[in-house]
Design a protein around this nucleic acid. Structure first.
Length: 808
RNA sequence: GCCGGAGUGGCGGAAUUGGUAGACGCAAGGGACUUAAAAUCCCUCGGGGUUUAUCUCUGUGCCGGUUCGAGUCCGGCCUCCGGCACCA
């Protein structure tokens, strides 16, 4: 045995060993219960960063731990390989996106292997490969068939100087990131997925996600934004037209004093004849903080009161939500109140607070109260009035009850090259024609150089665009937009179950076995979009009959950021720590251990070079413990069944450590406390008594279990140690140790003696003392007697095994 | 504004869910080894006080409350961080 552990030699050796043994290759045939452990796959940007390291190390610990607990573990990895940076690199360096991406993947795969992450690399997927994106296209066609994919006009960010569409993240303060021109909206026809069809299920499904962080569930709930209300038709005075409004506050209908409509409301161009007014409406401010409006000259009739209300175009009314028109109740809506004050519109109070006070109001009363001035509904509390008025509206044909969502349909068209081509053909005679299934994939042409000009790069590739119509065989052209990369990542976890499936996106036997993901781990930044889209896709794929699960991710862990000097690591801040240099200096086990020890996984992790040193020291101490005792360890009886009646303190400590480490992992993956417990065990083992053969046997027991418990965290050094203490085979084929509750119990406990809740003394007593003995011991303490003096005892509280509190 | 989450030593963080606050690590100070340094090992380490002790007071953002006992539970604030933000 070497005196000093060499991470360089050992890590390479064991990584090759695991690979050659196929240790992490998963198959659905095993008898053991399955466990699907997944981390969010990375974008192949070039090199992994500390955020990846943390994410993947957490996943690896869970996967290795579950394996030792006897689970059949699936732990795959792949690449979210389509996306904008590849195109930017192409423009900047003249490197083809495909070449750039593949080179990055190769380098980063090497980095992940050097971290000792145990993946089943045979299941690796890269979303830019045709055998993956083919299925994006296939899903698209299925959704098109079912009316879940459709086309509509929608706005994009357009840079007039670069003549190109910009992604949201390329627009900085309204300016183009590259040339600083003012970005203007441009209307294009684009493809959408009808996620709103699943709004209700996506919302109700949140209730079943009990193992998701509450805040993620809250964010999704908020994003879906369900609200119940009514739609009511207001007839336009002297016209056949009507304006349909949406409100959740039908209890305030009697207090409406005007109607507000969005700038883009169809009535503006449809009914207003005065061009001056139209111009004014068009020039309304886009600043959401300024309340601005224009009187349209129209009046609308409140069907409940018959009142003629002026119709205003207002800049704060959204066309995309509800009906694009609202009844305005200034007395009970703060926005309407400010608007009415500004334009001198009347205010009518219809809800009175419980402790009613008369007179002019200085702001809107938005709470519930008792209805007044509301015909037959006066006197009802708001909540009841909402029900009664909604019924009344429906019964009289004024409108209907509706549910609205803030959730919008998912726009998937991207005017980009490096993505999945949308499998649609445009024919002058047949119109929009889906590409036939048997012609998939529609390959992304590789002989194309991205220049950063024009709407869609593919539009310039004539050989791609020109095609024949699958229906009439006439000349036709292909769709040149590609799909949002969120499509790629919305089902990759399903593909991992059967990554080579050829005639279907998934092999149903495999997905039925593996899905759903038991543990998903990734950054909080995906709380809404990625996780919501994945839930949507899962439900769509279920409805296609390919899988059975309703939800993709059983349990979700959102790990915190890695920060340094109080800020997220970033090139611009110059506070980046490169994983490669850490691997080189300390090795993978040290880096892993530090990431796990410095903070619990869900919290931000403050990087500390000194902390890394500490992790390094600990591993070397553990190694040194073996080295120091190498002869004794070889000679010692290899027994797991030491007589528990004769337990030494070291045996007890070992059982306690097994318990502590196991519980820390099981309860909430608090690896930091698990590692702390292992440090305690090593510290104690270091100084343990070795005077008898039993003691040496206990030493071996302690060290052996320490190695097993440390294995998921520091896999290389523990494999090495496992051999050094004379064991055979990979430690990851060993069973996780089990503690003996009896052996873990302390023989003696420290009894805390309190007077009136304050600690006044301590005494060692045998564990398991009854109340009487405890009390007796407490009162025999001379100092305690002194405290009590001749005061009267009011009460004595005894907590077994802990403390006694004497109240005087 | 609304919704989440968090405030504990010089620092990262523990605390069996109401029972010894500060585990473990980092930093700092002292010591051993060494010609010296590094590495390693040992000791001290929330704050105040004094009679330096097996002492005492105080201490988990602030103010109250419940309790024999509160970092933990309840009520009211303050601060910070995240998300949404005219969604009618």
């Amino acid at each position: 045995m070497e005196e000093k552990y060499s991470s360089k030699k050992a890590e390479k050796k064991w990584q090759e060993f695991w690979e050659s043994e196929g240790l992490f290759r998963a198959s659905e045939n095993a008898e053991a219960p399955k466990f699907y452990c997944l981390e969010m796959f990375p974008y192949p940007s070039g090199r992994i960063h500390m955020g990846h390291v943390r994410n993947y190390v957490i996943g690896d610990v869970i996967a290795r731990y579950k394996r030792m607990r006897g689970f059949n573990v699936l732990h795959p990895m792949g690449w979210d390989a389509f996306g904008l940076p590849a195109e930017n690199a192409a423009i900047k360096h003249g490197l083809h996106p495909s070449k750039w991406t593949h080179e990055n993947i190769d380098y980063m795969r090497g980095q992940l292997k050097k971290l000792g992450l145990g993946y089943d690399w045979q299941r690796e997927v890269a979303t830019c490969e045709p055998d993956y994106y083919k299925w994006n296209q296939w899903f698209f066609l299925k959704m098109l068939e079912r009316g879940l994919a459709y086309k509509k006009m929608s706005s994009v960010n357009w840079c007039p100087s670069c003549e190109t569409v910009l992604a949201n993240e390329q627009v900085l303060d309204g300016l183009c990131w590259r040339c600083d021109s003012t970005v203007a909206p441009k209307e294009l026809e684009q493809w959408f997925f009808k996620i709103t069809d699943y709004a209700e299920e996506l919302l109700s499904g949140l209730d079943s996600l009990n193992n998701w962080p509450e805040r993620v569930v809250a964010m999704q709930r908020n994003w879906i934004g369900r609200s119940e209300g009514v739609e009511v038709d207001f007839h336009v005075h002297n016209s056949d037209h009507k304006i349909r409004i949406f409100t959740t506050r039908q209890d305030t209908l009697y207090g409406a004093t005007f109607v507000s409509i969005a700038k883009q409301h169809p009535i503006v161009s449809g009914l207003i004849r005065d061009n001056k007014i139209i111009k004014e409406i068009e020039s309304l401010s886009d600043d959401p903080l300024k309340k601005e409006g224009v009187f349209t000259g129209l009046y609308a009739v409140n069907p409940l009161t018959g009142d003629r209300l002026p119709v205003w175009a207002a800049n704060f009314v959204l066309m995309e939500y509800g009906t694009g028109a609202v009844m305005a109740v200034p007395a009970h809506d703060q926005r309407d109140f400010e608007f009415a004050k500004k334009y001198d519109i009347s205010i009518k109070i219809v809800v009175a607070p419980e402790n009613k006070e008369d007179g002019p109001i200085s702001q809107a009363f938005e709470d519930d109260g008792i209805l007044v001035n509301s015909a037959q509904f006066s006197g009802l509390p708001s909540s009841e009035a909402r029900k009664k008025i909604a019924d009344y509206i429906e019964q009289n044909g004024f409108g209907k009850k509706v549910v609205n969502y803030k959730l919008r349909d998912w726009g998937i068209s991207r005017q980009r090259y490096w993505g999945t081509p949308i499998p649609v053909i445009y024919c002058n005679t047949c119109g929009v024609v889906p590409v036939p299934e048997n012609e998939l994939p529609v390959l992304l042409p590789e002989d194309l150089m991205v220049t950063g000009k024009g709407t869609s790069p593919l539009a310039g590739a004539e050989s791609f665009v020109k095609t024949t119509c699958p229906v009439c065989k006439g000349i036709a052209r292909r769709e040149t937009d590609t799909m949002d990369t969120f499509v790629d990542s919305s089902w990759y976890f399903i593909r991992y179950c059967s990554p080579k499936a050829g005639d279907k996106p998934v092999d149903s036997k495999a997905v039925d076995y593996w899905m759903s993901v038991d543990q998903y781990i990734g950054g909080i930044e995906h709380a809404v979009l990625h996780l919501l889209y994945s839930r949507f896709f899962t439900k769509v794929i279920r409805d296609l009959g390919l899988i059975k699960v309703n939800e993709p991710f059983e349990r979700l862990l959102t790990q915190g950021m890695v920060i340094k000097d109080g800020a997220k690591m970033s090139k611009s801040k110059g506070n980046v720590v490169d994983p490669d240099s850490m691997l080189d200096k300390y090795g993978a086990d040290t880096l892993r251990l530090f990431c796990l020890f410095a903070a619990p996984p869900e919290k931000d992790l403050e990087w500390s070079d000194k902390g890394v040193e500490g992790a390094y020291r600990f591993l070397n101490r553990a190694w040194g413990l073996l080295y120091k005792n190498r002869d004794k360890l070889q000679a010692a009886n290899n027994s797991n069944s030491l007589n528990s009646a004769d337990v030494s303190s070291l045996l007890r400590k070992t059982h306690q450590t097994i318990k502590k480490v196991t519980k820390s992992i099981e309860s909430d993956y608090h690896f930091n406390t698990a590692i702390a417990a292992l440090m305690e065990l090593v510290n104690e083992t270091m100084t343990s008594d070795l005077s008898t053969p039993e003691h040496i046997e206990a030493l071996r027991f302690s060290i052996k279990n320490m190695i097993l418990l440390l294995a998921p965290f520091a896999p290389h050094i523990t494999e090495e140690m496992w051999r050094e203490i004379g064991e055979q085979g990979s430690i990851f084929n060993e069973k996780w140790p089990i503690w003996d509750e009896e052996a873990a119990k302390e023989e003696e406990i420290e009894l805390v003696i309190q007077i009136n809740g304050k600690v006044k003394g301590k005494a060692m007593i045998p564990a398991g003392c009854d109340d009487e003995a405890i009390q007796e011991r407490a009162f025999s303490d001379s100092k305690i007697r002194e405290y009590i003096g001749n005061k009267t005892l009011k009460k004595v509280i005894i907590i077994k095994g802990r403390l006694v509190n004497i109240v005087i």
